[in-house]
Design a protein around this nucleic acid. Structure first.
Lengths: 163, 163
DNA sequence: TCTACAATGAGAATAAGTCCCAGTTGCAAC
DNA sequence: GTTGCAACTGGGACTTATTCTCATTGTAGA
C-alpha cells in the first residue's frame, strides 16, 4: 500500500524509505528527525529529510507542527488510525487520543460548511489539546487568573522531556 | 487588561509591547514576525521576539504553529474571540473561522474526558482545517486516490501567498 | 544493453529563533 | 524627588533545524 501511494507520485519504495516507515511504526508516537537519526545512525540526514518529504507528499506520513523548533512525523491514515494529540506545553510530550466517530463527523460537517463559505477545499482537520502533563503540572503555580486568563508558563523543558 | 495580565508575571506594558499589540490588532489575522518587522521596521528583531514571548507567557498573544518554517502570532482571548483556522497547505494563507458554541462545548467535553484519563491538565484546544484555498486548488490535479489516500502536493508557495 | 530519470549522500547554505551583555528605564520605597 | 532594584532594550553573535547543490549511483523499461 505504501508502494502504491509512492508509485502514484512516480516515487519508489526504496530501502531507505522502508526503514523510515518501519521506524515510525516502531515508535508508535510522533517522533522528530533527531529521534529517527539516533535510532538509525546510518541513515544520512539529508536523505532522511528528503524521504520524509516524499512520504508526506505521497500521503504515507504526516508532518505535525506542535513546537516551533522542530517537526514531528507520524504515519498517516490508514496506516495509523485517525487520532488527536495531548500536547504538554512545558516538556513537549505528545500523547495520542481518540474521539468517537459521532463527534468526528460533526466536526467535519461544521468545518466543511465553513470551508464552503470560504471557497476552501478541505483535506483533513487537526485537533490538539494543549496543556500540562502530570509531570509538569507542579511547575505551574495557578492556572487561571481572576479575569479568567490562562496563565501559561513556558518553562525550560525539564529533564524527562519526551521530545 | 493587557497591562494587568503582564503585571501578573512581573512584566511591564512598555511602548514596544504596546506597538506589538496594536500591530496584531491592526492585522486582524495571524502574522509572522517578518510581517510585523516590515510594517514596523524600527522595532528591533531581538526585542520583538523577546516581547512576543513575554506577551505569550502572559496570555496576551497566541503563538500558532501551522507551517514548520515560521511561527504566526495573533491576539489571545478575549482580545480576540475564540476561533479556528483554514490553512492552505500550498500557499500558507490562513483564514479565521468560527464554530457554534454547542460544538465547541462538545469538543471541550470529550477532550476533557480523554485528558482526565491521561492525567493531563487542559489549557486550550487547537482545531484547524488543512486544505487548499481557491487560488491554489488548480495546482492539484486530483484530490483523492482510488484507495482513498489524500493526495497532498506540497508546492512552492505561489506569488500570492499571504504569509 | 541502453537510456532516462529517480535516488543517494556529503557538505554548503539558509534563515528562524535564541543568547549575551552592556547600557537604559520604570516602579516603588523612602 | 532620590535611590535601588529589577525589568527592559538593542545590536550582534550564535545556534540549529531544514533546505539546497551536485556529482554519483541505482533501476525500470525499451
Amino acid at each position: 500500500m505504501v508502494r502504491a501511494r509512492l508509485a502514484r507520485h512516480d516515487s519508489r519504495y526504496t530501502p531507505g524509505r522502508r526503514r523510515l516507515v518501519e521506524a515510525l511504526m516502531g515508535a508508535g508516537r510522533p517522533v522528530t528527525l533527531t529521534e529517527i537519526a539516533s535510532s538509525a545512525p546510518d541513515l544520512p540526514v539529508s536523505s532522511t529529510y528528503r524521504n520524509l518529504s516524499v512520504l508526506e507528499r505521497s500521503g504515507v506520513v504526516n508532518r505535525i507542527l506542535i513546537r516551533g523548533d522542530r517537526a514531528y512525523f507520524e504515519l498517516a491514515e490508514p496506516l495509523m488510525s485517525h487520532h488527536h494529540h495531548l500536547v504538554c506545553i512545558s516538556c513537549g510530550a505528545i500523547t495520542d487520543i481518540h474521539l468517537d466517530d459521532e463527534l468526528e463527523e460533526m466536526i467535519d460537517l461544521r468545518l466543511a460548511e465553513a470551508a464552503r463559505r470560504a471557497a476552501f477545499t478541505p483535506l483533513r482537520h487537526m485537533l490538539d489539546l494543549h496543556g500540562h502533563c502530570s509531570r509538569c503540572l507542579h511547575l505551574v503555580e495557578d492556572l487561571t487568573t481572576e479575569d479568567g486568563a490562562t496563565n501559561i508558563l513556558r518553562i525550560n523543558p525539564p529533564a524527562h522531556h519526551a521530545g
